[in-house]
């Protein structure tokens, strides 16, 4: 049994990582009052962009950069529609989601002869951290991952610090709770929301790159498989606090790893289709289980100085 649990936990962390960065970015966007619904599309486009970047430059790091830029670009459009124009955030998010998925598919199709000649690209290979990697059990679970996993890990405390302990974090939170009041106090509401929204796109880009360059080592349609929405659920489950959101991501990652193993082992005679459903079912269950939701008060509400009460 021991090796099973060892690989389960290691796999859980591996599968949580494409969620972590995007969920933290989404936390920032939502705390500032903008709902990024299109994460699914940002991640898909970012995965395609990071593949192309890695393929043409031969460097996984430049691929990562391309992915982050692609995610940020889509989020910038979202910010324009939602912050500058004050239009519906859900319609804009869904539109950008579909656009991202379509453009990703078309770009890869055009570049690699209709998906037939998917190239081998330089990826982020697992790095053994010296010393720590030698630790029994913990070493195998925590310190045998690709570079992006460690980066995602480090993002948790740093982004927690930014959001909860810095002036910018305070402004972000204030803008999402009471935009008119923050404006009176001299906070630039639009700029804060722009920064947070684009940041969520860049972080989704990082997550998409994790998916492409560290986990799958290639791109295929439907690769993100609803993770964009599981991320939003993780933000709700984590009550919009970075550390708890990270916990929620770990939970979903672990679940995904468990589900994969169950599919293969076919335990208890349950058909594999039901194991594939489990992450989605648990996401719904998690949403139902959250009792005291502390949502940012002005989430999804655009702010215009002229219209403020």
């Amino acid at each position: 049994m021991a090796p099973f649990f060892l690989s389960l936990f290691a796999g859980g962390i591996r599968l949580a990582m494409p969620l972590v960065a995007a969920a933290l970015g989404e936390t920032f966007a939502q705390r500032s009052g903008v709902l990024s619904v299109g994460i699914e599309g940002y991640m898909t486009l970012a995965a395609a962009a990071s593949l192309l970047g890695s393929y043409y430059t031969g460097s996984a790091w430049l691929g990562l950069l391309m992915g982050m830029a692609a995610g940020g670009l889509l989020a910038l459009i979202h910010a324009y529609f939602c912050v500058t124009r004050g239009l519906d955030q859900i319609v804009s998010g869904l539109g950008l989601m579909f656009l991202g998925m379509a453009v990703a598919c078309m770009v890869i199709w055009a570049s690699f002869a209709g998906f037939a000649g998917m190239p081998a690209i330089s990826c982020f290979d697992p790095i053994d951290i010296p010393m720590l990697g030698q630790l029994p059990i913990i070493g195998q679970i925590l310190f045998h991952h690709g570079a992006l996993t460690y980066i995602s890990f480090l993002l948790v405390p740093s982004l927690w610090f930014v959001l909860e302990r810095t002036k910018f974090g305070l402004r972000t939170r204030a803008v999402g709770e009471f935009a008119a009041g923050s404006d009176t106090m001299g906070v630039n509401v639009s700029v804060t929301r722009y920064i947070c929204t684009v940041f969520s796109g860049v972080m989704s880009g990082l997550a998409g790159a994790v998916l492409c360059l560290e986990i799958n080592h290639t791109f295929f349609n439907g690769m993100v498989a609803g993770r964009g929405f599981i991320i939003i659920a993780a933000v709700v489950l984590g009550n919009w606090s970075p550390v708890r959101v990270f916990g929620a991501c770990l939970l979903f990652g672990l679940l995904d790893a468990f589900q994969y193993r169950m599919q293969i082992l076919g335990w208890w005679g349950v058909p594999y289709e039901f194991w594939i459903m489990t992450p989605y079912i648990i996401t719904i269950a998690a949403l139902l289980a959250v009792r005291r939701v502390r949502m940012p008060r002005e989430l999804c509400i655009p702010y215009f100085r002229e219209k403020a009460q």
Binding site: F81, R85, L87, G95, F98, M101, A102, G114
Partner: peptide, 24 residues
């Protein structure tokens, strides 16, 4: 052209964004 089904999402994405921009 032998493209994938996902390329059709382009149309729906554009429609949603165009409907949104129609407000402007």
């Amino acid at each position: 052209l032998g493209m994938h089904a996902e390329s059709l999402y382009l149309i729906i994405g554009l429609i949603l964004l165009a409907v949104l921009a129609r407000g402007i």
